[in-house]
């Protein structure tokens, strides 16, 4: 086996591992969300399929696959078929740049647990999250339904607005780490996690990612009760499933990124690095579910007010303060 083949094999193995783990986690996140929400509401949740209901994701999958794949007759055919993929693919692509564990020794070589260590990793994530808008926008527009269109217009405005505060809240971490490479950002947090230096940036990032993955306090694009189901009103079967699973992959990915940027990535005592990363990511997922069980939905104007008049100026001030602080530390 030559070096090149070995390299390619290891890369493919990593990609396959990420696909398998992330998709399974996403499916089980749906289940965990239903159970946790049920407990919060003093119910029991799905517990009939398999022991403790653990086979529920499989049952959901079979149900979605066997449902009728309906397309509204007035819909724009190709965009209607394309939009769910556009929503799900950027979410899972982002995982390419996240380091999910310390480098391991495998077959006599150092293998970093990361698919691609781009030197612009952080910007890569920003780019993909700005691309994720298209799934929402085109899906809603192509359905040719008024609810879907309203949902997608709301989604467009929301995603673009919160992307800005999300990007700005990440600038201080870049300033502290001195690199856009995610592995170096993680390496810079070996001693002290960035959440200690940057609690404000962390709070802004947390709110922004909740808005980015359209979770409940910010689920204006799909507000049931106002817009039926928002931008995916007209979708059924596995196409709806793609939107759905994309949303949950997004939760995992954004939780992983929050871990990487603020909670020290895979650093942690005693346990293996991979376990630490998964545990921190799942803690974020749990927090999102918990928030969903607690908070009511914001109004559209409140959302815009929060994004543009509170989070973005705060993030800018935070960048300025971080700059001054770094300069003073440099001078001393």
């Amino acid at each position: 086996m030559t070096d090149l083949t070995l390299d390619i094999t290891i890369h493919l193995a990593k990609i396959a591992l990420i696909f398998f783990v992330v998709l399974t986690l996403a499916a089980y996140l749906v289940f965990a969300e239903r159970r946790l929400l049920a407990w919060i509401q003093d119910r029991k949740g799905p517990n009939r399929v398999g022991p403790f209901g653990l086979l529920q994701p499989l049952a959901d999958l079979i149900k979605l696959l066997t449902k009728e794949d309906f397309r509204p007759p007035q819909a724009d055919k190709w965009l209607f078929y394309l939009a769910p993929a556009m929503a799900a693919i950027p979410a899972i692509l982002t995982f390419a740049v996240i380091p999910f564990g310390a480098p391991v020794r495998l077959l006599g070589r150092e293998v970093p647990l990361q698919v691609a260590d781009l030197n612009v990793g952080l910007l890569f994530f920003m780019a993909l999250s700005s691309i994720a808008v298209y799934g929402v926008a085109l899906g809603g527009w192509a359905s040719n339904s008024k609810y879907a269109l309203l949902g997608s217009i709301r989604g467009l405005a929301q995603l673009i607005s919160y992307e800005l505060s999300m990007g700005l809240s990440l600038v201080p971490t870049v300033m502290l780490a001195g690199s856009l490479r995610l592995s170096e950002i993680v390496a810079a947090q070996k001693g002290v996690w960035f959440i200690v230096y940057q609690p404000l940036a962390f709070a802004i990032f947390l709110v922004s990612i909740a808005a980015e993955c359209k979770r409940i306090p910010f689920d204006i694009p799909e507000a049931e009760g106002e817009l039926v189901a928002g931008f995916h009103t007209e979708y059924s079967g596995m196409r709806f499933g793609l939107f759905f699973v994309g949303e949950y992959i997004n939760i995992i990915v954004l939780g992983g990124l929050a871990t990487t940027f603020f909670l020290g990535g895979w650093h942690g005592p005693l346990l293996p690095s991979f376990v630490w990363f998964v545990a921190k990511t799942l803690a974020f997922a749990f927090f999102f579910i918990w928030m969903r069980g607690t908070l009511p939905r914001l109004r559209y104007d409140q959302l815009m007010h929060l994004g543009w008049k509170v989070l973005t100026p705060l993030a800018l001030v935070n960048i300025l303060a971080t700059g001054w602080w770094l300069m003073i530390r440099e001078l001393r």
Partner: peptide, 10 residues
């Protein structure tokens, strides 16, 4: 809501 997680389901 945290308290309700541990409450007995009805």
């Amino acid at each position: 809501t945290w308290k309700h997680i541990f409450r007995r389901p009805v």
